[in-house]
Structure formats: structure tokens, C-alpha cells
């Protein structure tokens, strides 16, 4: 019994029943299949997280994001004072997480690709794009660069899903996806 020593002293020489061998083989092959699926998706799949990342001083990242906002700002989000930025299609865009906001609001064109630079200037935050449900961890000191291609117009929320202190549940931001030839605000 499982609570007593094995009845056969040389238990490692027992023959094994077919059903156990078959199941073990199946389970093993399933593991191989799952392993292969991840690799295949890197080749044929459209959704793979970029590996491009750099170490960066939080102050440097803040400066770059501010310069970016300066350059492409087209308005403000309601009365929040958060800038809305409309960068050219295909360009590098910045978003920073800090206690407790995602800054700035981005306005992107549908079907265009952008190199999104993500980082935090204080604690860790969780970039959670809703309702698409893309979730990426954001660290201070690391700049993560990923290429996104919004494929539907609409307003998307970004909530924070890494606990970041008492204001965690007030931390949210926005990405607005517009159709290709929607004019810039104020024009």
C-alpha cells in the first residue's frame, strides 16, 4: 500500500501495464505539441510580444515622452489636462505609467503600425488594454518597444493591473483608434 514499503523489494524492475505506458506517451507527445505550438506561432502567428527592450533612466524616459507629446499634441482629454497626441502613422509613440495615470492619451489610425515605447517612471504598473485584453508588465528602468497594429476603430481603455499603491484603482488611460482619413482635432 502507498503508506507501507513496497511489497516487492525490487520495485523498479516490475513490468508496467500498457495503459500506463500509453497514457505516459500520449501526455509526453501532448507536451511536445504544446511546445511546438509556441514556436510555430512565432512564425505564422500575428500576436507575439516583442523582445526589444532597453535599460533606461526613468528621467530619460520622461523627457522623451514629453518631447513626443510636445511635438504631436492635438488637444486634451476632457477637462483632465491629459494631452491627446496624434503621431504620424508608422512612427514611434510613447506611453508612460506613473502614480496614477497612463500618459498621454494616444490617437492612432486604424490599420497602421506604431512602435509603442512603454515604461514606468516610478513603480511597476500593468498595461491592460481593454476590451482587447492585451496585458503587459511595465517596469521602471526598462523601456519595452513593441509594434502594435490597431485593427478596429473605437475608444480603448487602459487600466492598471499591477498593484501600485492606494491609487491603483484610479489609474486608467486611453487609446483612441480612428479611421484612416479622420482629420486631426482642431483642424
Amino acid at each position: 500500500m502507498a503508506v507501507t514499503p513496497p511489497a516487492q523489494r525490487i520495485w523498479w524492475k516490475e513490468p508496467v501495464e500498457r495503459v500506463e505506458l500509453v497514457w505516459t506517451a500520449l501526455a509526453f507527445l501532448w507536451g511536445v505539441a504544446m511546445f511546438a505550438t509556441m514556436i510555430i506561432w512565432h512564425i505564422v502567428g500575428q500576436q507575439n510580444l516583442a523582445n526589444e527592450a532597453y535599460r533606461i533612466q526613468p528621467e530619460r524616459f520622461m523627457e522623451r515622452t514629453e518631447a513626443f507629446v510636445e511635438k504631436y499634441k492635438v488637444g486634451e482629454q476632457g477637462d483632465t489636462g491629459v494631452p491627446v497626441v496624434r503621431p504620424p502613422a508608422g512612427s514611434d509613440v510613447y506611453m508612460l505609467g506613473r502614480l496614477w495615470e497612463w500618459w498621454p492619451v494616444l490617437e492612432l489610425e486604424k490599420g497602421q503600425s506604431y512602435r509603442l515605447h512603454l515604461s514606468s517612471v516610478d513603480w511597476q504598473h500593468g498595461f491592460s488594454l481593454q476590451p482587447v485584453n492585451i496585458n503587459i508588465q511595465v517596469h521602471p528602468g526598462y523601456e519595452h518597444v513593441l509594434t502594435i497594429t490597431p485593427d478596429q476603430a473605437g475608444e480603448y481603455g487602459i487600466v492598471c493591473n499591477e498593484f501600485c499603491g492606494i491609487g491603483h484603482h484610479t489609474m486608467a488611460g486611453k487609446i483612441i483608434v480612428v479611421d484612416r482619413n479622420t482629420p486631426k482635432r482642431g483642424q
Binding site: 509556441m38 506561432w41 502567428g45 500576436q47 507575439n48 510580444l49 500593468g126 491592460s128 485584453n133 492585451i134 496585458n135 503587459i136 508588465q137 493591473n161 499591477e162
Partner: peptide
Amino acid sequence: EQINILMHNT
């Protein structure tokens, strides 16, 4: 690896 994008920290 990739599916985690859908669920991480949710």
C-alpha cells in the same frame, strides 16, 4: 508564452 498576453495580471 503568447496566450499569457491575454491573461497576465487579470
